[in-house]
Simulated assay, not measured.
Amino acid sequence: MRKTAVVPVFDHLGVTVDDLPSAIAQFAPVLAALGFTRYDAENGVSWHTEGETELILLPAREAGTGPHRHGQVGWQHLAFAVGSRAEVDRLHAVAVGAGWSVVREPKLYPRFNDRYYASFVEDDNGIRIEFMHNPPREQSPQAVV
């Protein structure tokens, strides 16, 4: 049996913002807390994970075209899966401390399942992110063969 290479869900994500310095100030603490490393470029900034997944911020081609409006065509939100409810709470606090607006405080979302715990925040550009913890359902002893 041949092993299949593990490929990231996405390689990179580019996000256009109205005010690049302001967006950097909001994204930098959050992405650092998630373990991303920052790289500055001539016309933008990017953050990379160890697996080379990249998030890039770029200035809008036309000033004043933002913010993005949640629910309209385009970006909905990006969810960061984390290892615990405490990590959701910590990252939520980091984001709020960096100027992100609270959309939804950390809480359980039983409409998804009884384990789904998450928070939602939005930056000045209308970019929404979620921090979520959704541990696998524990198998009952009868389910293990």
Rank of each mutant, 00 (worst) to 15 (best):
G44W: 02
V45H: 11
L55K: 01
S22I: 12
T37C: 01
L13Q: 15
G14L: 09
T37H: 01
E42N: 09
V17E: 09
T16S: 15
V45G: 10
R38N: 00
V17R: 06
R38E: 03
W47G: 02
I56N: 06
L31V: 06
W47M: 01
T53L: 02
T16V: 08
L13H: 12
E52F: 01
A41W: 06
A23C: 10
F27C: 12
P21I: 10
S22N: 11
Q26G: 09
E50H: 06
Y39W: 08
W47R: 02
L57I: 15
G51K: 11
A33F: 02
W47H: 03
S46G: 15
L55W: 02
E42G: 13
E52K: 00
A25G: 11
T49A: 05
F27G: 06
Q26C: 07
I56E: 07
S22K: 14
E52V: 00
T37V: 03
L31A: 07
T37G: 02
A25E: 13
L31D: 00
D18S: 12
F36M: 08
T49Y: 00
L20V: 11
T16K: 12
N43V: 06
G44H: 02
L57M: 12
F27R: 09
A25W: 05
D40E: 12
G35H: 10
G14I: 07
V30M: 07
V15H: 08
S22A: 15
D40L: 10
Q26Y: 04
E54N: 03
Q26L: 09
A25T: 10
A41F: 06
E54T: 04
D19I: 08
L57Q: 10
G51L: 08
V45W: 11
P29M: 13
E52L: 00
Y39H: 14
L34W: 03
A32R: 10
N43K: 09
H48R: 11
S22G: 14
N43I: 05
A25V: 11
G35V: 13
L31I: 09
T49F: 01
A41M: 12
P21C: 11
T37D: 03
A33C: 04
F27I: 11
P29H: 13
Y39L: 14
S46A: 15
L13C: 14
L20I: 09
L13F: 05
A41T: 07
W47I: 02
T37E: 02
Y39R: 14
L13P: 03
A33I: 02
L55C: 00
L34H: 03
E54F: 00
A23F: 06
Y39N: 14
S46N: 13
G14N: 09
T49K: 04
A25D: 15
S46M: 15
A25R: 13
L34I: 07
G51P: 00
N43A: 06
T53K: 07
W47A: 00
E52A: 01
L34A: 04
G44P: 03
D18M: 05
G44K: 08
D19N: 15
D40Q: 10
V45Y: 07
V15N: 09
L57A: 09
A23T: 09
V30I: 05
A32L: 07
A25Y: 04
A33K: 06
P29T: 13
V15Q: 11
